[in-house]
Design a protein around this nucleic acid. Structure first.
Lengths: 205, 205
DNA sequence: CAACATATAAACTGTTCAGTTCAGTTTTTT
DNA sequence: AAAAAACTGAACTGAACAGTTTATATGTTG
């Protein structure tokens, strides 16, 4: 009768595990999170967790990737639409800054940076589903703007690397290192404005 | 007869311990380095190590601080001398980029970022003896340049935050995440030049 | 020499934690 | 309802590792 949404779920509790892992990893970091904490949080047995994920690292990787993907997709949609370069850059900067400064964003960053030496695939997969997406998006957007005569850029790839860095502007470092808990709206706006101003002053026609 | 260099060393093997710790921490990271590895590398007994340093964290902190201080001192000396703004910025950028990209610089960064959540004083002390030094130095230099009419900057602190970020320009992220082992001289030069160009294009008179 | 400081090796403690195993229960499918 | 698949709980293993203790040695100084 009904041909329902059999989404080939690979077990009923997959989402539950991932959500619990997200919570605990974001709260305690990678080393700080014990698998026992995670299964408790997820309301699932340890055996179930290990039937989905071969080890703790891959579990974390899955969490980090899903965060990045959610973020990237949202960003891509917004950049496709509008016309004015300055406006697009401001919007993109806003997104980036707010993600960099969010609890989740910073925690993923901390863990990935801390663990990528011992577990290189964490670094690779994070880069591919986070920074690289942004970069490609920016390269595309900037190239188009150059073609349309709206920007003047020699080295588009360099420009696409510079812009996200400008969006960090000291605040990110202070937050990541735990020197402060949060940034005020004014500070964030100043960083965004500063980034766009500087970028346009160099590359604007 | 001989009145030799009794430099009031607080124990003969202090340096030896620190040097061994440096080697092992830089090779294996903080969690990856076991205290037993360190004493083996240092050629020292565990009891000796623990007679100098109350725990592993503080030992690492000492290593990281000594790296940062060496780096900061060298940088400060160079910025004091010369006259042309563009030249000073180029030199400073060169220093920063090369430190960011060095094995030691990246390893300290990885560890500090990874551990600063669980051990906040690591973040604080690192910031104070690294990024903060650079920032203060830049604020001083830029203010002077503004006073002398060589630069035009509204928000000097923001500018002092932006410049080091520009010196990372994507390369740093790729190296830290282990996507590549090293950067070529051309790439480094391009980043330096790009940073100085962009900075001057916004803030040059 | 005597006392004092420094260093050593090695065994030990206590804990934490990833990952396994398995007998038994619940849920889904046929 | 019967068979198959997913899940549970709890105990267990095995290893890593920070930090301590002990009994001993070496060297220095007054």
């Amino acid at each position: 009768m009904n041909a329902p949404a059999t989404v080939t779920k690979q077990g009923r509790k997959w989402d539950q595990v991932l959500e619990g892992a997200r919570t605990v990893f974001m709260r305690d970091g990678f080393e700080g999170a014990s698998v026992d904490d995670i299964v408790r949080e997820a309301g699932v047995s340890k055996a179930t967790l290990y039937s989905y994920f071969p080890d703790k690292r891959l579990l974390f990787l899955e969490v980090a990737k899903s965060e990045c993907n959610a973020q990237s997709e949202a960003a891509i949609q917004q950049i496709e639409g509008s016309g004015d370069v300055r406006e697009v850059l401001s919007t993109a900067a806003g997104r980036m800054v707010r993600f960099f400064m969010s609890d989740v964003g910073m925690q993923v960053f901390r863990i990935v940076v801390g663990e990528s030496q011992r577990f290189p695939e964490i670094g690779r997969e994070f880069y591919a589903s986070g920074p690289l997406m942004v970069r490609q998006m920016l390269v595309g957007f900037l190239s188009r703007a150059v073609d349309e005569g709206k920007l003047k850029i020699d080295d588009v790839e360099l420009a696409a690397d510079q812009f996200p860095e400008l969006c960090k502007a000291g605040l990110h470092m202070q937050l990541v290192l735990g020197l402060r808990d949060s940034a005020s709206e004014e500070e964030i706006d100043r960083v965004i404005e500063g980034a766009v101003d500087m970028f346009m002053s160099q590359y604007g026609v």
